[in-house]
Amino acid sequence: MQQLDLETHSLREVNAMLQAQDAQTNHTEWEILNPKGAHAIACGLDAEIDVKVKGATGYYCGGMNKHATIRVAGSVGPGVCENMMSGKVVVEGNASQYAGATGHGGLLVIKGNASSRCGISMKGINIVVHGNIGHMSAFMAQSGSLVVCGDAGDALGDSIYEAQVFVRGSVASLGADCIEKEMRPEHIAKLSELLSAAECDADPSTFRRYGSARQLYNFDIDNAGAY
């Protein structure tokens, strides 16, 4: 176990040390102490290492993550694991706005609540939120899955493309071109896998599925008069 203390090391030193690890590294377990809400902790990692952050973080924790598993024992600020490519990020507390934005792959787990714009423009990432999510979540979401065990705020899935959204609780309102869809066996199977990977024992059959009505994909000549 390697320990890095942000009281004694600068953020740049800590991130440089984590980023220097490669596939052959012997140091696969890391702990970051005294994060105290600092920004951009454990960003740009590119190795199969485990990083535990012992406290709450600020903006952009775990951004651009590849391969690494990052676990935050606290809450995270805006933009947690923005543009993640692969790997896993687990937040034990709550997440602020645009969690998992533009993520291409990997799994983001938020054990508390996420606020607005969770999964905005997601491009393949899977996000599982144990609690609730705020408004405008999955806005323009392109692919991947957003799973919400609690309730969703207003305008869920506005202008959504081919991402899938699963919600167990209530949905305050659906955004433009987002509709409820049939839960078929393949969706239950996929949801079971995601819940299991996200350390969540919710029953997949209690969720409802939402996705794109595909009415905004192409210009509709009948609307020409409106422009």
Binding site: K36, G37, A38, G58, Y59, G77
Partner: peptide
Amino acid sequence: FGSEYRALV
């Protein structure tokens, strides 16, 4: 109140 959690630590 803080704009960020950093302000409260």
